[in-house]
């Protein structure tokens, strides 16, 4: 298991290859990547992500440990950035490895659902008009109920 909370950009290909190369006997690797997208009407200049140093790493480790308990996983990787990110930059990624794809897919979805609402990050959208904190969606909280 590797958890990285960082300001630096990461290379999706390098990270996915390194993750896959370190596995022993896994038949399935799933990766998910979150990317800074524009606002519906355009105009996003940047996204700023604040976090709670210490709690962030602790919360992600607990979420990943829970995933490893629920599914038979060969390995888990979570990288999540903070600081100022430009449109199109990668915000975060998860990778899961398992013998079979069902476990890898489900565990990746579980990680994403929990990272959204239980890892202490706060996003702010920067436009020419100013900066707006992104509000949490009820749907994100509801998504946890299926697990």
């Amino acid at each position: 298991m590797r958890i990285a909370v960082q300001t630096a950009a990461f290379d999706l290909g390098d990270e996915a290859n390194a993750f896959a190369a370190g596995l022993d006997g896994a038949g399935a690797v799933v990766t998910f990547t979150g990317v800074v997208r524009d606002l519906p009407g355009g105009g996003l200049q940047a996204m700023e992500i604040e976090h709670y140093p210490g709690m962030t790493e602790k919360a992600i480790t607990e979420i990943a440990t829970q995933a490893a308990t629920r599914w038979a996983l060969g390995d888990v990787l979570v990288i999540h950035r903070h600081g100022r990110l430009a449109l199109g930059e990668m915000i975060m990624m998860v990778a899961t490895a398992a013998s079979h794809r069902k476990d890898a897919f489900e565990a990746a979805e579980y990680l994403m659902d929990y990272l959204k609402s239980r890892a202490p990050f706060w996003k702010r959208e920067i436009t020419a008009e100013g900066a707006d904190w992104v509000a949490a969606k009820d749907a994100d909280e509801d998504a946890l109920e299926r697990w």
Partner: peptide
Amino acid sequence: VAFFPPMTGG
């Protein structure tokens, strides 16, 4: 003790 709005990670 930390106070904050609902989290928006991912």
